[in-house]
Simulated assay, not measured.
Amino acid sequence: MNLVSIRIITANIERLVNFYEQVTGIQAIRYTPDFAELKTTTATLAIGSTRTLQFFGGDLIAQPAENRSAIIEFLVDDVDQEFERLQHLLSSSIIQEPTMMPWGNKSLLFRDPDGNLVNFFTPMTIESAEKFLPHQE
């Protein structure tokens, strides 16, 4: 089994897709006006409008801008460089500037326009970096 994507449901799909395109530098694939994906080499961030909830049983299935438990995480080459690049865009939504975590990652934590937590991180120790090496079997 593989985790292949995380989907965010939003009431303002254009705003959220544009935000993620800006912060990641990845061009979203817009399949319909209500659904887009940002594909990375390891997983996909899918973004769907509230109108897509009709396919899953109705508007009560998920509530946009109500996440208080998940953090969307992106492995980046240099978290300090990303912070410098995005500081103007993120100035009002930064939760934590680049900070060394006890598990060996340097982490930048901010909120997207819907309030979801986003973590850009860079492994700073050998042990933390080894988790992201291809597995040898």
Score class of each variant (00 low, 15 high):
T125W: 12
V4P: 05
Q96I: 02
P102V: 04
P113Y: 04
A70P: 02
D114R: 12
E137R: 12
A129L: 06
F55K: 11
R51C: 00
Q81G: 05
T52W: 01
S93M: 09
S128F: 11
E37A: 11
Y31P: 04
E97A: 15
N116F: 04
I47R: 04
R68A: 15
H88G: 09
V17K: 04
Q22K: 15
A36R: 02
Q22H: 06
D78W: 13
L86D: 09
T44V: 15
R15M: 14
F74H: 03
T24G: 14
I71G: 00
E21M: 13
Y20R: 01
M1A: 12
F35A: 00
N116S: 12
L108Q: 01
G25R: 07
G115E: 06
I95C: 08
V17P: 12
N18C: 08
L117K: 15
I71H: 06
L109E: 09
A62Y: 07
F132N: 05
G58Y: 03
A46W: 02
G115I: 02
T41Y: 10
M124E: 14
P102T: 04
R30K: 15
R111M: 11
A28H: 07
I71M: 11
I47H: 05
I9W: 07
N67T: 01
H135N: 10
E82S: 08
G58A: 13
F56S: 07
A28S: 03
L75K: 06
V118G: 09
P98Q: 08
T24K: 07
A43P: 11
V118Y: 03
E97W: 04
K131I: 11
A11T: 03
I29W: 10
N18I: 07
E84M: 10
G104L: 05
I6C: 14
D80A: 13
F83K: 06
S69D: 04
T32Q: 09
E82A: 12
E97V: 15
P33M: 01
L60T: 12
W103Y: 15
R7C: 14
L53W: 04
F132Q: 02
E127H: 12
T40V: 11
I9P: 06
Y20M: 02
E127A: 14
F120M: 15
T24I: 05
E97L: 11
I9A: 03
V118T: 01
M124N: 10
F19T: 05
E97Q: 15
S69E: 12
F121T: 01
T99F: 10
R111N: 06
Q22V: 09
R15W: 07
E37T: 11
T44Q: 06
R7W: 02
F110R: 08
K106F: 05
G115Y: 03
I29S: 12
P113C: 07
R68Q: 11
K106V: 03
Q87L: 13
Q81P: 00
F121P: 12
T50C: 08
F56N: 07
I94E: 00
S107N: 15
I9R: 06
T52Y: 03
V17G: 05
E73A: 15
